[in-house]
Every structure is written in C-alpha cells, then in structure tokens.
Design a protein around this nucleic acid. Structure first.
Lengths: 129, 129
DNA sequence: GCGCAAGGTTTACAGCTGTAATCGACGCGA
DNA sequence: TCGCGTCGATTACAGCTGTAAACCTTGCGC
C-alpha cells in the first residue's frame, strides 16, 4: 500500500549516521564488516554496531537481507536524501531558509579557502550552462 | 584566569537555540518577555522558557543581570560563533570538511534559486575584491 | 554428537532533551 | 498587615541517544 515507506520517517542520529556512511560506501555488509570499518578510530564494540543496525532497520533506513544465518545490511534511503535533508534543516534553522545566506556566511567567516572559491565559481559557471 | 569562559563549552540544543535567537534579537529581556516571543506559535509555557534560560546560564551561554528581584537575560556568545560552529559541524560531518561540496550539493539539489546563484556570484566577485 | 564461536535479539542504563509542575521567597496593593 | 501574584530554583519525568552486556540459537569443527 505504502510506496516503499517513502517518508524518511524517523530521524537518523549521529551515531547511526556513521553506520549509514559505511553502508553507503558499500552495501550488503555484515555487522562484523561494518564494525571493522566504523569501530576503528571510534572506540565502539561490535555490540554497539549491532544495536545501531537494528535501530536503523526498525526505522526503515536499512534493509537486512538474510544470508544464511546472518544478515547483509544495505541502506534503504539514499545518501543524497539524508544529506539534503540535514542541510535543509540547518539552512532553515540558522539562515531563515536562505541557502545563499549560508554561503555568504561561509565565505565571510573564511570557512572557504581560495580553492573553494575557485571551485564554487566553476560550479556556478557550469550551472549556468 | 580563564578568558571569560571562551570555549563555547557545552552544546546549545535546538530548544535552547530558539531562546538564544530571541536574546540575540534584543538583549536584556526578562523570562516573561522572552516567553512572549518564543511561546507564541510554539506551544511552550513560561516554565519551559525559564528552564531553558537557566540551562543556558549554567552553560555560560547567557548572562543573567539582576534587576530588582528578577533577571535580565543577555546572550554571552555571539550568534556568529554559534552559526559558524553549527555550519562547520555539518560541513565536517556530511561533506568531509569541504564547504565547497556543500555549496555544490545545494546547487545540484536545486536548493539554490536563480536569485541565490546571482547573489552568490556577486558575493564571490566582492570577496575577490 | 558436543561445545564453541558467531549472529541476532532483548535488556540495561546513564546522560541529554523537552516540557513542565511545585516550592519558597518577596514585594505590592487592599 | 495579609494574601496574592511573580520570580527564580528545585524537582520531575518520559523519550531519545550512546554504549553495551546478557542471552538464545545455530552452524561448524573435532
């Protein structure tokens, strides 16, 4: 009935997001594989990763495809959508919805390097085809 | 000893941020005044605003200047700093630290209107003095 | 066949957040 | 002077988050 649970439904938390990144990078990984990537540097245990994966499955952000007695996990929502959503939230909250204000702020606060500026300029030119 | 508790120390939450906006807009307001602004639309009670103000004072983000038997609240951290911090966090988390990537994303996802693009272009020109 | 390793599921639990209600002091008007 | 409204401070409490440990099942190696 519902188109594949389209609504990004529940918010993905920061910890969960770390897991998502691993799955976006390569889908169909086991919990252990995800842990290998995400647990190094960050000081997490496999148990933690399992919890996060479960929660993500629950909230419909990740699919668990049975593979023998374990699961292969894959993202169900696209990174684009997540990133877009988060960005929009920020722009909404801090810049009254004006993305240009964000850019202006980044520029003025020197968060943008010369190269960034070059890059953006090139981008603009391109967008204006 | 410490320069006026410079470190943005503790994170400001979303609810607290709403209060900060009111104080940034006009400092030296009473709890009731803040509530008047922030409680309309959002369905908060004065009690809630008081709690948020207390927490902000605790975490050094807001000053409470005694005025008779009440306080006038003023922001201690600048909006610039907060906005900058939040923006940086986002860019870090979602765009590997590249602000240009953010802009690229906004552009491609059509979050930027023609006028936005114009605005940004003008900005760039200006920055390049 | 049996025990261990590996998987997932359930339970745990402290700290943070949102959202208040309650409490105790105090000044003001009747 | 007495009570009431107003203030900040204290306490509350449920839901969310981060971070696991404990538990239960099952396939695999010996």
């Amino acid at each position: 009935m519902n188109p594949p649970d389209n609504h990004p439904s529940e918010r993905i938390t920061e910890a969960e997001h770390a897991v998502m990144e691993v799955l976006w990078d390569r889908p169909r990984q086991t919990a252990a594989e995800v842990c290998e990537v995400v647990c190094t540097g960050r000081d997490w245990s496999l148990a933690t990763v399992k919890t996060l994966l479960s929660r993500l499955v629950q909230k419909g952000a990740v699919a668990a495809e049975p593979d023998g007695r374990r699961f292969l996990y894959s993202p169900l929502i696209e990174r684009e959508a997540y990133v877009g959503g988060e960005s929009r939230r920020l722009v909404e909250r801090l810049f009254g919805g004006s993305a240009a204000s964000l850019v202006a702020h980044l520029a003025e606060s020197e968060a943008l390097s010369e190269e960034d500026l070059d890059e953006i300029e090139a981008l603009l030119k391109e967008l204006r085809s």
